[in-house]
């Protein structure tokens, strides 16, 4: 009896582990490629930077925070950087899932770049560090690329909520059939995002975006001659 129970628990544990491994397999691949890209690009850039500061002389392109702070962080903490970066991804995915699950059917039906599928694809694109790292020439730029990716993931659920709700309001304003010009504006706003590296830049971007949406609706109201009620 005890043996049977033990066998059952082992099989259950193995099944759970296998399921968990399958569930995170797709995300894991991107995480691994991020990790590899970060290690490889850091090595390459480090060699170039060491060359620039050789013989005790600073060349025209200086190393920012040489030997300290960001420089050392990027060189030494690959696991930590990738771990944090992956946390942002998981957080953004869960917040977006929550939003689309809890928002009304109209918001879930929002099309184009405001749709859930499109947003999830965008999240994966932001999460993928490889293209951004390829363009980096210094360790500081590598750090910036990681921070920009993290900030974009942080802001994406809020952008998704704004875009989906704006699509619903626009649809309501035009009886379910907004004109092409309004749809184009919504599409443009849904993908609008300036690179941000910290919470202040995220807030600045979000404020500008919220105001742009408000301007759009003020324009619609003026066009339709809506007065104050």
């Amino acid at each position: 009896m005890i043996l049977k129970a033990a066998k059952f628990f082992v099989v259950a544990a193995l099944a759970a582990a296998a399921l968990a491994a399958t569930a995170c397999a797709s995300a894991r691949n991107v995480t691994e490629s991020n990790k590899t890209a970060l290690s490889r690009r850091t090595r390459e850039v480090q060699r170039a930077e060491l060359f620039r500061v050789s013989r005790g002389r600073m060349r025209p392109v200086p190393v920012v925070f040489s030997q300290h702070g960001i420089y050392q962080h990027v060189l030494q903490n690959h696991e930590l950087i990738i771990g944090e970066h992956t946390d942002y991804f998981g957080n953004a995915m869960s917040r977006m899932g929550k939003f689309y699950a809890e928002s009304g059917p109209e918001a879930r039906r929002a099309g184009g770049s405001a749709s859930m599928e499109s947003r999830m694809k965008e999240l994966l694109r932001i999460y993928d560090l490889e293209p951004a790292l390829e363009k980096c020439e210094t360790l500081y730029e590598i750090w910036q690329a990681v921070e920009e990716s993290k900030s974009a993931m942080e802001a994406l659920p809020a952008r998704a909520a704004m875009a989906a709700n704006a699509a619903v309001w626009a649809s309501e304003a035009y009886g379910g059939d907004p004109p092409e010009s309004v749809s184009a504006q919504l599409e443009e706003l849904a993908v609008r995002w300036q690179p941000a590296r910290n919470v202040f830049e995220i807030e600045k971007n979000m404020k500008e975006l919220a105001e742009a949406y408000a301007e759009m609706f003020a324009g619609i109201a003026a066009e339709r001659g809506e007065g104050v009620k």
């Binding site: 309001w169 304003a173 105001e211 949406y213 408000a214 339709r224 809506e226 009620k229």
Partner: peptide
Amino acid sequence: AMDGLIPPIEGLSAERAKSVLGMFGFS
């Protein structure tokens, strides 16, 4: 606005915000 309770009116003057709100039947 993000919760879908009201249309986006952040940054608008009171008059313009009222016109947007009025468009959707808000007071």
